[in-house]
């Protein structure tokens, strides 16, 4: 992995991005999603993004699957084959079942 950073020449100034970023409505300066422990939305998003990129790195690891991973890969293949073999009625029923499960989770 390369880490050959040299000081910037000024072409990526922070004001440029600050001016262009449209912050989503749920993120505001000082927004605190856990007032007791002081976890801010920004910190949570930052850490979430960091883990996302660690995940992207992990997914690009070319090593062969472990036995446990292979089991999941095969299972996922079987599930997909089952989906493909379903009739339109069975697919409608599955859609309804998943919608119910989502409503219940909320």
């Amino acid at each position: 992995m390369s880490d050959d950073w040299s000081p910037p020449t000024g072409e990526y100034e922070r004001p440029r991005i600050l001016a262009s970023l449209e912050v989503t409505s749920e993120v505001a300066e000082g927004d605190c999603i856990d007032p007791v422990l002081g976890v801010s939305e920004r910190d949570l998003r930052l850490v979430d993004a960091f883990y996302h990129h660690l995940g992207v790195e992990a997914s690009e690891d070319p090593s062969p699957p472990t036995a446990e991973e292979q089991e999941s890969i095969d299972w996922l293949g079987e599930q997909f084959a089952k989906l493909q073999a379903m009739t339109p009625e069975e697919l409608d029923a599955l859609r309804e079942e998943r919608a119910r499960a989502r409503r219940w989770r909320r």
């Binding site: 950073w5 910037p8 000024g10 072409e11 990526y12 100034e13 922070r14 440029r16 991005i17 600050l18 970023l21 912050v23 989503t24 993120v27 920004r42 910190d43 998003r45 930052l46 979430d48 993004a49 960091f50 996302h52 990129h53």
Partner: peptide, 16 residues
């Protein structure tokens, strides 16, 4: 480290 800083700014407002 300007480029890394702007990436972090994107991350903390939800652009990843």
């Amino acid at each position: 480290d300007g480029p890394a800083q702007v990436i972090l700014e994107c991350w903390q407002v939800g652009f990843v």
